[in-house]
Design a protein around this nucleic acid. Structure first.
Lengths: 140, 140
DNA sequence: CTTGACCCTCTAGGGAGCTATAGAGTTTAG
DNA sequence: CTAAACTCTATAGCTCCCTAGAGGGTCAAG
């Protein structure tokens, strides 16, 4: 019987490409657990590498670390969090949709100004800073 | 001959709808100037209202306060900053374009996952947290 | 034994544009 | 005259995900 491999934080960092400081940060958020040796060092089992990769993958899906924590909590309760993940994912998609729409409308606005200002020689009024911008209406 | 109107910061705030704290913040960035009375109060001429509105309008075009400062500097040098403003505006449009493209591609990715995961009953492996997320490839 | 590569905790910072508070002085309406 | 409403400075906090540094202990190779 061999003792299970005990990884130090630097080993986990190397195997995952995540900085040591970030790993400690994950732990402070409760996303990653470690055992402490007598020297105070954090020790990890090889599954920790897998867990860090899980965090990376969730982030790649646009999940915040808080989201990851929520998923982990569902898992901790013994449930399979896939349904929860699906709904989170749908939320992210909807948020993206909304943001894209907003940005597209905003871009159209800006292009409108650009085209209107393309060759106009503005009529500066006393006190004006940029006579072009001065024509923008105040949204009150 | 009447003394020119001297506005206090609260007056400017009321007339522009910008919080007092924000006006002080603008001043700290050099975007808004005031004279000090013997009591230490900031006093503004009515053109300050116009200048604050200019800041608001520039922000409505997606300009950062730093951008506004740059525009103001051109103006301060005695130049008309409209050419500079046009090029800033084109930059903002381009940035929006890029961001929209990125977000659209990302959204397509997420929708891909969503559809693939729609009714799949995943095959949990020992150590898995959410078998769905586990299928996401690591971008290394 | 020494040197260097690790590890620890705690604190600060950053980006953007503010808001909020504390503790103090000033002005203004009644 | 008093009380409310205003003003001042200076500092901290917000969001998110870390990074960087100080000041110290621990461990492995030569």
């Amino acid at each position: 019987m061999t003792v299970a491999t005990r990884l130090k934080i630097g080993d986990v960092a190397k195997q995952t490409g995540i900085a040591v400081g970030a790993l400690r940060y994950y732990e402070s958020l409760g996303l990653l657990h470690s055992e402490r040796g007598d020297n105070g060092y954090r020790y990890y089992s090889p599954t920790a590498v897998h867990q860090v990769q899980f965090i990376k993958k969730a982030q790649a899906l646009g999940f915040s670390l808080e989201d990851v924590g929520d998923v982990l909590n569902v898992h901790q309760r013994g449930d399979v969090p896939c349904g929860f993940v699906r709904s989170l994912l749908q939320d992210k998609i909807q948020q993206l949709e909304d943001q894209i729409q907003q940005m597209t409308a905003f871009k159209a606005d800006l292009e409108d100004y650009r085209d209107r200002w393309a060759e106009s020689q503005p009529h500066p009024q006393p006190g004006d800073i940029c006579p072009l911008i001065e024509t923008v209406p105040l949204t009150v």
